[in-house]
Design a protein around this nucleic acid. Sequence first.
DNA 1: AGCGAAATAATAGTAATACTATCACAAACT
DNA 2: AGTTTGTGATAGTATTACTATTATTTCGCT
Lengths: 231, 231
Amino acid sequence: MAIGIKITLNEGLYLRDPQETALGQRILKHSILLIDEIGFEPFNFKKLAVHMNSTEASVYRYFENKHMLLLYLVSWYWEWVSYLIDFNTMNIEDPERRLKIIVRTLAYASKENPAIEYVNESILHRLIISEGTKAYHTKSVDKENREGFFTNYKKLSEKIAEVIKELRPEFPYPHTLASNLFEMANNHIYFAQHLPSLTDVVVKGEDFDEVVTMLEHFAFSILHCSAVKAK
Amino acid sequence: MAIGIKITLNEGLYLRDPQETALGQRILKHSILLIDEIGFEPFNFKKLAVHMNSTEASVYRYFENKHMLLLYLVSWYWEWVSYLIDFNTMNIEDPERRLKIIVRTLAYASKENPAIEYVNESILHRLIISEGTKAYHTKSVDKENREGFFTNYKKLSEKIAEVIKELRPEFPYPHTLASNLFEMANNHIYFAQHLPSLTDVVVKGEDFDEVVTMLEHFAFSILHCSAVKAK
DNA sequence: AGCGAAATAATAGTAATACTATCACAAACT
DNA sequence: AGTTTGTGATAGTATTACTATTATTTCGCT
């Protein structure tokens, strides 16, 4: 059990480091709860302040605006998943087993070791599934990318891609498959819950086993048969 | 060349049918241009009215709010791609060739037959890539789904899934693969343009051939080797 | 225990946003 | 010619996205 780990994030994401102070930690905690509850568009710093019994001005001292707060939460999640993958694949040599553990971690990030009191990983996972991609689908993506705000996603993707390369060095799309496994995990949980005709997997409550099976099927079909060229 | 086709969409998407009037068509045209230019979050009906030389109140007579307008545009796109797939696969029997045509259509929807003067399909495609998923990542998704606002996506997904089923009747994930091909096409064009380390494909300008090759590789690897179970 | 610095709370204010309402006018239909 | 319908013009309101100022509390240090 990893108690007291600190997730290290790009300093440009925040004005004052929220992990350093009690108020900052309350901002993280309550923003996760409130965005999950009402959705990102209706969410604002006034509502957050009321929810956490503080003031709007105080929240603005930590984050420039709600977009930066979302980017912070998403980065936190990317880094958290990276940490979980390291932790769960430690001492495992076989890249096939490692990839299976990775896939399971992507689907079940929420159920792991809640190590940090001010972040409810289960709710954060739900939030990432619903709102995560809004963090990089903006007009400012290139500028923010230059400032390193997506480093955590890139590192996570690279970590997965390394295992794929180890498994199949000649596979031409390791990064594509890596990011797609992450996106697919989130997408198909969402589809199963809200637009079930867009998927074949069924999730009941917190049981994402069918998502894991499906991701494994996709990943290993592609990797084991990548030599088969279409036509 | 299909001149004057009319895209049929759920009536709940709009207050007044924008395809029916000159003003409505100008709303569609200018909203595509303006959202593409400034992004969806900063976009609003006041700016649209100025851009198209009309008034805010007039725009509000056509759409309840900007979310519904986005949903309309996205639905239009889904329907447009469905139409293109029908058109392009007409008289083609071989399901493998059909799937290849579908994949190419997903990546190159923009370059096809611009049949409707008030919709710039190329710009709309770019808009869908950047903003498309915001149409269903909202708290109102279940309610809107019940009202049939995502029917066009479901129909498109089902159309692709049918071809997959024909090709491999025993494949357990036809809808998953179908929606994933659509999402992947958009995602990896976006990644190639903005976050290239999350993909392996390269796009230069309007040349999405590498995306097509990648999607074919994924689709046919999975379908040709779906019997290979991991472990 | 007492002082200064820093963080937070309280309050207020501004510009922009997301609408709604009203009325006037023009075209189009009857 | 009169009525309906669509659009434009204008105005107004509540909420949002901030910024600024001052008061109060907490914290670190001697």
